[in-house]
Design a protein around this nucleic acid. Structure first.
Length: 957
RNA sequence: GCGGAUGUGGUGAAAUUGGUAGACACGCCAGACUUAGGAUCUGGUGCCGAGAGGUGUGCGGGUUCGAGUCCCUCCAUCCGCACCA
């Protein structure tokens, strides 16, 4: 009987499903191991061969761990809220839930064909109310929490209320409560707090909640009709769809991820992730150490009078420090050593103080500039980095040390979202400031002597953190490094500012003006947001007539009829972003059916965090950062016992498509073969890869492909074939280079596909898909099959004692397989099997002991054929997944002799077989006595002979 | 500009600690088998050379008895981030 993969795979797929072979539960007698894949968004296009790459690797690893006796949790689910289903709904009116359901069915069908060992009883879908009930629940926990900088962790908001009741807001020393995150709070005493009404209290608490409603500049995408988080904006356009994005001041639900910036940074040192992802996260968090410095605004007439109503300023939602008179501009700098080189101060166009400090003479010009800057999209602004623009406000600040007046400018090179939205410009030692000063003719003051003599201060700023300080009063003569600490010391001592750590990370905007997402469990009473009670969850997504915003520009949820909290109060109308559900799904797998908790304590204690996470690196700044944030939060609040979700992560590389081309002769309906194309003027045209085999075009098929090619002519190679050119590109429909796993499973079987995907190359590497090589793996499985059968196709297994040779082959393979799996080297694993089967075939080995061990090792890669052969060896059905992985025994590899490579001056010349019991001196004598050696010595005496027993001999002449 | 990764045959790649470069496979070449099965078997296949031999892991240097592997300089490609003060 031949290797009938179709029958075998159908049989075992059915067997696993019916017997729930991969269902797991908590079992304290075994060590646990949690292997997780990044769950897919079920798109309408289905899977191509690139998608299952990571799933195959994680499945192999899961099966390997199971064979080693671990209790392996290996679940799968769907990230099923998202934009494409909603866009489709807008176009067709079909409810996104239906589209999602259909896509999931297709995904499931495709996944099932590949033979994964998922425990499908644990499937989760983020769009299911039973799931998002708990996403909403976590949101409420975040809403009811604040970050206590003193304990450095999230706490229930009640502990903050207790502080307020006892000591108010600690006077002016707000940092102790806010950790420098929020600064626009008016100080109050305990008594004042007690006398505030509920609305006022809630308003103050909103400044501390980890999920909060606040006004801030957001990325507004009008084409999508929603706001986007920073990581959803790429190169100034939306990640999905590539629509323009502008900055807009809006009231939005946000997540105070900035409170966790330092812990998110520190945690990276404790997890086993690729350096590049960790660096990307460090970069995104963007910690920089420096100093804040306050500059007093000089113009007398602008000074805020002492009897001014401070609250009126607060209520303008100033994100900046404008609280105390006289007006001050606070800047953040990493170079306080250059403070004496400040020749102007620049404000971001959106900075609150711009309007307040501009003089009447400059008003028109400044307003025009600000207006223009605000209307520029992110993309325009980024594309235009080299154009210098700015405008003078007419006002001055006072230098804190010299007391000299310094002009205040507005410039869009200063970003409102970073630092304080204001910079002290030191043109002598900052490139942008230099350009700005040159452009506007502002004086440039040198305060550092460059270490490089040839540096010309007239041509460029000296920006290196090296050199000696000059023109700087008490800093003169110090090195830059010394001057940084000395200046911070002086600035702090004089109350001009203080040392400060700044992060690039912004709070994450959480509301989306979309339909297909989790409703935010909030209602409004007296314009104040209140969270729903746990017992009122889930707040299910209401039905709407259309999935578009209303005519008044309200989100789609505003279309829902009679959708009110207790029939009285308005619900929040925005929904959660795509990353909400995926920030905690790994926890729900532990206890997917629990209706009273998001996960039970017992289960989360047993399973713990993810031991191995496999997925793409494209989530480096989105999902992976948010999931870490929520995990830290849930840990702080005592819901889970760990504060990093994913201990080890591997990022599989992208699989690129291999596009094929035909060459159309310009002006004719004639195609020229690859090697002849340079003789003619022709244009390459993508041709469907299903019409090409080994670069040879199926000419008849091609003629039928498109009506216009029916009568096409072909200039072929000498042998009459038409050879196509190729290029490696991303897989896409428009390039006709998409390879689906389904076709390959049909043609070669799932085992071949699984093994071939691993054989392509290292998991983490980007690699081109090329179907050519799949035959090699297919042939390997047939060769394996033949090991178990005689020439007539009957099972032929010997029960004899295995030969020494066979045992050596087996144990060599056991050792290599264990090593390779432990270091996730799946591609070399495949070649180990090939070598092993080649050797056993040469040895004509059909010994049961040997073959049984071999297929156990093979079963993680090719589970179907392994199950089948396992039964043929006389074992009970379906148990190979719980067999025991073979153990390496070194005894079988012991050798008595070794083929020594003999080198002369490092060049290998010949080999000689010598006993391993010889000592170096004996080896040297034997080698030098050889006739071959005399030839290479050319009569000279060797200067030295290096001998590494069991490795090499090197003769130095 | 900053950061990360990668450069090895015609192709995908291997070489885990500095010790025989190119395992394993694809493709190709030659042959066998006997019909057509994405068969199977045998031999060959880095480059130059008829051969002896020479040469060879992006370039150039260095350390070493010995370097794909370690160090320095440079180049190329890919991926992040980017007016971040």
């Amino acid at each position: 009987m031949d290797y009938d993969f179709r029958a075998i795979e159908n049989k075992w797929r059915k067997f696993w499903a019916e017997n729930k072979t991969f269902k797991v539960s908590e079992d304290t007698s075994k060590p646990k191991f949690y292997v997780l894949d990044m769950f897919p968004y079920p798109s309408g296009a289905g899977l191509h061969v690139g998608h299952p790459l990571g799933y195959i690797a994680s499945d192999i690893y899961s099966r390997y761990k199971r064979l080693q006796g671990f209790n392996v949790l290996h679940p799968m689910g769907y990230d099923s809220f998202g934009l494409p289903a909603e866009q489709y709904a807008i176009q067709t009116g079909q409810h996104p839930a239906i589209t999602t359901e259909q896509n999931i069915a297709r995904y499931r069908d495709q996944l099932d064909k590949i033979g994964f060992s998922f425990d499908w009883d644990r499937e989760v879908r983020t769009s299911a109310p039973e799931y998002y009930k708990w996403t909403q629940w976590i949101f409420i926990q975040l809403f009811n929490s604040w970050f206590n900088p003193k304990s450095n962790k999230a706490e229930h908001i009640d502990s903050l209320v207790a502080i307020f009741e006892k000591e108010g807001s600690n006077g002016v020393n707000l940092d102790q409560l806010t950790g420098d995150i929020e600064k626009d709070m008016i100080p109050f005493t305990a008594n004042e707090w007690k006398n505030y009404n509920e609305k006022k209290k809630l308003e103050i608490l909103m400044n501390f909640r980890l999920a909060y409603l606040g006004e801030s500049y957001v990325n507004w995408c009008s084409a999508l009709g929603t706001v986007l988080a920073n990581d959803e904006v790429v190169n100034g356009v939306s990640e999905r769809g590539g629509h323009p994005v502008e900055r807009k001041l809006m009231k939005q639900w946000s997540m105070r991820i900035t409170a966790f910036a330092q812990r998110l940074l520190d945690g990276l040192n404790e997890i086993d992730w690729s350096e590049s992802i960790k660096e990307t996260q460090r970069n995104w968090i963007g910690r920089s150490e420096g100093c804040s410095i306050k500059f007093k605004v000089k113009s007398e007439e602008l000074r805020v009078e002492s009897d001014v109503n401070i609250e009126s300023i607060i209520n303008e939602n100033s994100p900046l420090s404008a609280l105390h008179s006289p007006l001050e501009i606070e800047v953040f700098t990493t170079r306080p050593d250059t403070v004496f080189g400040v020749s102007f101060v620049t404000l971001a166009p959106e900075h609150d103080l711009v309007a307040k400090i501009t003089t009447p003479e400059q008003k028109a010009e400044v307003e025009a500039y600000v207006e223009k800057a605000k209307n520029r999209s992110e993309r325009e602004r980024q594309a235009d980095v080299n154009t210098i623009s700015g405008v003078f406000t007419g006002s001055y600040v006072e230098h804190p040390f010299t007391k000299l007046p310094i002009p205040i400018w507005v410039g869009d090179y200063v970003l409102v979202g970073y630092g304080t939205g204001a910079v002290m410009a030191v043109p002598g030692h900052d490139e942008r400031d230099f350009k700005f000063a040159k452009h506007f003719g502002i004086p440039i003051k040198q305060v550092i002597v460059p270490t490089n003599d040839s540096h010309d201060m007239d041509k460029a700023a000296w920006v290196e953190k090296e050199g000696t300080i000059i023109n700087s009063d008490f800093l003169n003569g110090l090195s830059v490094k010394q001057a940084i600490s000395k200046s911070i010391e002086e600035i702090t001592k004089n109350g001009f500012g203080k040392g400060r750590i700044n992060y690039r990370l912004r709070d994450a905007v959480f509301g989306r003006q979309r339909y297909w997402g989790e409703p935010i469990p909030i209602f409004y009473k007296d314009e104040t947001p209140y969270a729903l009670q746990e017992s009122e969850l889930p707040l299910t997504l209401p039905e709407v007539d259309k999935y578009l915003p209303t005519e008044d520009g309200e989100p789609p949820l505003a279309r829902a009829n009679n959708w009110k909290y207790q029939n009285a109060n308005e619900y929040e109308l925005s929904t959660m972003p795509g990353w909400a559900g995926s920030s905690w799904y790994f926890l729900r797998y532990l206890d997917p059916k629990n209706t009273s908790e998001f996960v039970s304590k017992d289960k989360v204690d047993y399973w713990g965090n993810v031991d191995l996470y496999i997925g793409g690196s494209e989530h480096a700044t989105g999902h992976l950062l948010y999931a870490r944030f929520w995990t830290k939060f849930l840990f702080d609040r005592g819901f889970i016992p760990f504060d990093e979700p994913f201990k080890k992560m591997i990022n599989q590389g992208m699989i690129l498509g291999r596009s094929s081309f035909v060459y159309l002769v310009i002006g004719e309906n004639k195609f020229v073969s690859y090697s002849l194309k340079d003789n003619l003027v022709c244009a390459p045209i993508h041709v469907d890869i299903s019409l090409v085999d080994n670069d040879k075009l199926d000419i008849e098929g091609f003629k039928k492909w498109r009506p216009e090619y029916t009568n096409a002519e072909f200039i072929c190679e000498e042998d009459g074939t038409y050879i196509c050119g190729y290029e490696v590109e991303k897989m896409s429909k428009s390039k006709y280079n998409v390879q689906t796993p389904d076709e390959l499973v049909e043609k070669f079987g799932a085992d071949t596909l699984r093994m071939y995907e691993m054989f392509l190359g290292p998991l983490e590497q980007t690699k081109p898909w090329d179907t050519k090589g799949i035959n090699g793996v297919f042939n390997f499985l047939r060769k394996l099959w033949r090991l178990f059968h005689d020439a007539n196709g009957n099972v032929a297994i010997s029960e004899d004692q295995p030969t020494k040779e066979a045992l050596k082959t087996l144990h060599k393979t056991i050792k290599k397989m264990t090593d390779d799996l432990d270091r996730f080297s799946f591609n070399t694993g495949v070649s180990n099997f090939m070598i092993c089967v080649n050797e056993l075939t040469d040895q004509k080995c059909n010994n049961k002991q040997i073959l049984q061990e071999l297929i156990i090792m093979l079963s993680p890669y090719t589970p179907h054929i392994s199950e089948e052969l396992w039964v043929k060896l006389g074992n009970a059905s379906g148990t190979i997944s719980t067999a025991k992985f073979p153990v390496f025994n070194e005894e079988f590899l012991v050798e008595s002799a070794f083929d020594y490579p003999v080198s002369f001056n490092g060049k290998m010349r010949f080999k000689v077989n010598l006993s391993l019991s010889l000592n170096p001196k004996e080896i040297e004598e034997l080698v030098l006595a050889l006739e071959e050696s005399h030839k290479w010595l050319e009569g000279k005496a060797p200067k030295k002979v290096i001998i590494v027993p069991g490795k090499i001999v090197n003769v130095v002449i």
